[in-house]
Nucleic acid binder design. Structure first.
Lengths: 339, 339
DNA sequence: CTGAAAGCGCTTACAG
DNA sequence: CTGAAAGCGCTTACAG
């Protein structure tokens, strides 16, 4: 069943059917519209979007780049704890705006370009930050509007949506200070990572603001994983310092930290208060339940999607293309008040 | 840059370029192949797959139906704890086989049909079971090969991939029995749900096999959520029965159960042993760490994808279209041995 | 081994 | 308000 078939059944031209389908009602009489619509419904006609893409030079397809893969096939698994929320939120929002969602993994920049040309993709969303020069190269190719999460690039052509990472760690550090802590460890391998560096700066700022010295020996450069968290916890427990609290840059890291400190003989939070980052649902499943910094992931996903759609449809975005969303601290049980 | 442009630059016909691109090397001389490939590389030509779809009547697009949505926009969030692993695994496998992956949510059967016609989708994967009559109706429409997870339909036209749910609860129940438990609660609202009913049957079978009577009062029909788990745990703690252990059909339910029992004054696992189901990564983050039944999700995802590809390419599948994958119990700390 | 032509199912000027 | 024709970028018989 094609447009042509419908046209024949309705005894009108293909163009008329096309106009009815595309809502160009100015160009067709009400009577014809009804007749055509009835026949479309009767035969269950659905337009072929490949054909439409071919003529229109756009596809209504948005590509979502879900990860970059290296050599190991399973490297990627479990990496992005937000993947399902992001994907679901983005897909629903795109669908509301008549876009279709393709997911795609890549190995390098070239993959992205090929992919976008293959389907005349209308826009691309990267679920994770890319190096600035990769983004720049992509912009130079001028393939389609691009949105990226958690990138700090200032390229005006790319839409970025971040959360306020500086504030995130400022809040968790401040929260500990407000509860009487002043010997606060920072557990994260932040150097080389712009996002984590921002969080570190938030930590530092909170200390400074309260006149608490920043001590190098309170900085524990462990990666943000459960396993590394355990190692950090063990180390802190074995060190016999004055540390009474630790901030982290990931919930799994914080959970590992609690576990490691416990293995080192500490009671949590009695001897060590801990804060997480991400506010994953598992924060409520640990004991003590984990106090954490929450990014509103749904809001981030919607923001990126809406900006991208705006850019696709109008060629530009009214506000800044670089959105920074607020964060907040979610209080649970992993911090002991010393006052 | 189109096929035609390449043909002109190479001074051959479009057909020759097409044959080179599609690897039909029998029909082109080695010299021509090289010449054409060089020009393709030089200009970074990438074929337009919409055009190809249009001629070929197939698209190399596989649709993945990620969820069905109701009235509430955010109902779906957090529903499928495996979504990210499934999606990533499937996408990589499809990509290896030259397919592209579209994700799509639906509100009803009609959506699926429209979607598949829109893009001439080559196959569809449902990430969650659909009612048998919906599947039957879909098969009747004869749109494309279909694969479904966790459906027990016996329609030979649809590929199903399940894990051995009967065995799953048989294993966890048996595990408790082997550790000296005989008063074992079953916590799950299994009725009306075919998958959970299979798990219940596994529980029942393990009891029977060991000559332990099945007691109605040991069955707690709570939904498989954290919140309901808490309620169940509180109830069990308040009941003062001989129950020393409980099996569940979800990790979050088990975690809630431990929490609820604790709130009711129980120590876990000293007074109540608990097993989960799914072996989510959060099992290792709770205390005690949760013993759980593991389905190999990656394997399930690969199995469904490979069967679907086989069916698309050969029109049928060599083995049974209904795969049931093995499960195993992952031992941690939530079960106390009474012997 | 290579080419010219038709056709896939749409939309868009251009006419009337 | 409606139609006939061209064209989007491919592939596939059909010829040579």
């Amino acid at each position: 069943m094609t447009l042509k078939d419908i046209a024949e059944k309705a005894d009108v031209s293909m163009m008329t059917v096309s106009n009815v389908i595309n809502g160009k009602h100015k160009r067709v009489s009400a009577k014809t519209i009804e007749k055509v619509n009835n026949i479309i419904a009767e035969y269950g006609y659905v337009p072929n979007l490949s054909a439409r893409s071919l003529t229109n030079k756009n596809s209504n397809i948005i590509g979502i780049i879900i990860f970059t893969y290296g050599n190991n096939d399973t490297d990627y698994l479990d990496e992005n704890p937000y993947l399902h929320i992001m994907l679901q939120t983005i897909e629903v929002e795109l669908r509301k705006n008549n876009y279709f969602t393709m997911i795609h993994s890549i190995v390098d920049k070239q993959d992205i370009i090929e992919f976008s040309k293959n389907w005349n993709v209308d826009g691309i969303i990267f679920l994770y930050p890319l190096p600035d020069d990769t983004l720049k190269a992509l912009v130079a190719e001028n393939i389609c509007p691009i949105a990226v999460f958690d990138s700090r690039t200032n390229l005006p052509e790319v839409i970025t949506v971040c959360s306020d990472d500086f504030k995130g760690l400022y809040l968790s550090t401040k929260y500990l200070i407000n509860h009487g802590h002043s010997h606060i460890a920072f557990v994260s391998d932040y150097k080389e990572n712009p996002l984590l560096t921002l969080r570190f700066n938030g930590y530092r700022h909170a200390l400074e603001e309260s006149g608490i010295p920043l001590r190098q020996e309170y900085i524990f450069p462990y990666a943000s994983t459960y396993k590394e968290g355990i190692a950090a916890g063990k180390q802190i427990a074995s060190l016999n310092t004055k540390i009474t609290a630790a901030v982290t840059t990931a919930d799994v890291s914080a959970i590992g930290l609690m576990e490691g400190a416990r293995l080192g003989g500490y009671r949590i939070p009695a001897q060590l208060s801990v804060t997480g980052y991400d506010d994953l649902s598992l924060c409520q499943y640990t004991s003590p339940k984990l106090t954490s910094v929450s990014q509103n992931i749904r809001q981030k996903a919607l923001c990126a999607t809406d900006l991208l759609i705006e850019k696709i449809q109008t060629g530009t975005v009214a506000q800044s293309p670089h959105a920074v969303l607020d964060v907040e601290i979610v209080e649970r049980q992993s911090v002991l008040s010393l006052i």
